[in-house]
Computed example of a mutant assay.
Amino acid sequence: MSEAPVAPPTASADPARERGIGLLVQPPQPRAGWRVLPARVVAMCAVELQKLRHDRTELYTRAVQPALWLLIFGQTFTRIHAIPTGGIPYIDFMAPGIIAQSAMFIAIFYGIQIIWERDAGVLNKLLVTPTPRSALITGKAFAAGVKSLIQAVVVIAIAAVLGVALTWNPLRLLGVGAAVVLGSAFFSCLSMTIAGVVLSRDRLMGIGQAITMPLFFGSNALYPVAVMPGWLQAVSRANPLSYQVDALRGLLLGTPAHLAADFGVLLVAAAAGIAAASSLLGRLAR
C-alpha cells in the first residue's frame, strides 16, 4: 500500500500569532535613545502636572502677589512718574517684569518637591527605572514651566483689566509662552541643583528666600538698566531674569528688544541647569 504524499507546509493563516511566538523566541529591539528621551520627558511632565489637578490652591494663592504689585505698586508709580520708561506708562513697563517674577517664584522653590520625593522614597524608585536622569529633570523643569505659564495667563488677564496695552498677536503670545517656560525651566533646575547640594528642605527654603529678591531687584523688571548704578548694571547683565523680562517686554509691548540674544541666553541657561541638576540627582537620592 503506497503512502499518501505529504503536503508541503503552508504559511500560517494568523500572522499576529506568528509575531507573538517570535517575540517569545527573540525579544524586541530596544528603541534608540533619541526616541525614548522625548517620550520619557513628556511622561514625567504629565506626572508632575497630575498633582496640579488634585490641588489647585497653589495657583490661586500665588496670583495674589502679582495682583498686588500691579494694583498698588504699578498704579502708584504710574501716577508719580518717578521712573523714566521711554514714554510708556509705568504699569505697562512693569507688567512683563511681574509675569517673569511670578514665574520665577513658582520655579525657584521646586527643589523642595524633589527633596520631599526623596524623603517619601519616590525618587529612589524613579532612579531605578530605565529613564535617564536628564529626562527626569527635564520633565520636572518643563512641568514647572507649564505651571508658570498658567500663572502668566492670570497676570496677563489682570494687566488687561487694568488697561495695560498688551499685544494679542498669536505668534508673539507663543513667543511669550516660550520665554516663560524657558525661564522657569532654568530657575527650577537652579532650585533642584541647590537641593542636590544642601540636601535639606529647611536649608533650601532659606537659600531660596535669600536669592529670590536679589534676582528680582537685580534685573530690569522694575526699572530700566540705564538708571541703575554701574555695579547693578553688571549684575543685571549676568542675571537670566533680565533676558526673560527683555524678551517679554519686546513681545508684549513692542519695545526695542534683542530677542535672538534673549532666547539664546535662556536656552543655554536652561540646558546648563538641566545638566547641573542631573549630575547632582544621584547625590540627592543617597
Rank of each mutant, 00 (worst) to 15 (best):
S2K: 08
A11C: 01
E18I: 01
P27C: 03
G33N: 11
W34M: 00
P38V: 06
P38R: 14
A39P: 00
A43D: 09
C45D: 03
E48N: 15
Q50M: 10
Q65E: 13
A67S: 14
L68C: 12
L70N: 11
L71W: 03
F73V: 14
F73A: 11
Q75T: 14
T76N: 00
F77N: 12
I80M: 12
I80R: 02
A82C: 06
A82P: 12
G86H: 07
Y90H: 06
A95Q: 02
G97Y: 03
I98L: 08
A100M: 03
Q101Y: 09
S102E: 02
I106V: 06
I106K: 00
I108P: 01
Q113C: 04
I115E: 03
A120Q: 13
A120Y: 04
V122G: 04
K125A: 14
L126R: 05
L126G: 07
V128T: 15
V128M: 14
A135E: 05
G145I: 04
L149R: 07
V153R: 01
V153S: 12
A157F: 12
I158M: 15
A160E: 05
W168Q: 13
W168G: 09
W168E: 00
R172L: 11
G183T: 08
S184D: 06
A185C: 14
S188P: 03
S188R: 01
A195P: 10
V197C: 02
L204M: 07
L204K: 06
Q209F: 15
A210G: 06
L215P: 01
G218P: 00
L222M: 15
Y223M: 10
P224D: 03
V227L: 03
P229D: 09
G230L: 11
V245S: 02
A247S: 10
L252G: 03
P256H: 05
A260Y: 00
F263D: 02
G273M: 11
I274G: 00
